[in-house]
Design a protein around this nucleic acid. Structure first.
Lengths: 105, 105
DNA sequence: GTTATCTGCAACTAGATGATTGCAGACCAA
DNA sequence: TTGGTCTGCAATCATCTAGTTGCAGATAAC
């Protein structure tokens, strides 16, 4: 995962409806039509959200007969979390260094 | 940090310009005007982005004389990373369970 | 073969948002 | 006190996007 792919992941995660979809998929794979039955948006809206999530590598389509079910990919989340933690730790170290300097005065 | 504050953090991180700002701030605190000298956007655009980042708890304003410098808060990133990893691990476990079932057939 | 359902594409609308310019107030310096 | 700079507010603009409706094609079921 490169830095260019990181921003789309966050953009995908920065929407309440998409989180609802991810949470619903977390309980089991489902098609856009099935999700539309559980969420207060139309199937087409969900289809667009699924396309965004798929583009970010967060879900994966699986053909089951005539329908297309989607599966959530936890590995992408874990990978993103790891990179986020690294960056946060760096910035945290800088802050700690600043505080140490301030206390040393 | 609750689930409601999680989505705004991702929304804040889902923008290239805001990442540029965060990276610039990672090298040292700076004011909106100072950042405008380094980035290809106007000061006002940066000010709006800083407001978004502050709303997400990712930066913190520090008054220095007549100017307002901003400091990046790595702790928020680390906290977000931890929660993301937890969620990703859960979904990963579900996937692993599914795979195990499939192999057992 | 007909029917029902599920998918995908296209057009459209309304609201959010990234970015701009312009102006007015605050504050430090010369 | 006057000039320069930094901040903040408001209006405006263009684009993006979340959502909708409508329709056409594919495919499983009966």
């Amino acid at each position: 995962m490169t830095a260019e792919t990181l921003v789309p992941v966050f953009a995908a995660l920065g929407d309440e409806t998409r989180w609802s979809i991810l949470v619903a998929l977390g309980e089991g794979d489902a098609s856009a039509s099935a999700l539309a039955g559980r969420l207060p948006v139309t199937r087409q809206a969900i289809a667009k959200h699924l396309a965004v999530l798929q583009g970010a590598g967060l879900v994966e389509p699986v053909r089951v007969g005539r329908e297309v079910q989607y599966r959530v990919l936890g590995s992408q989340l874990s990978e993103t979390a790891r990179r986020l933690d690294t960056i946060g730790a760096e910035w945290g170290r800088r802050l700690a260094a600043i505080k140490e300097l301030a206390e040393g005065l």
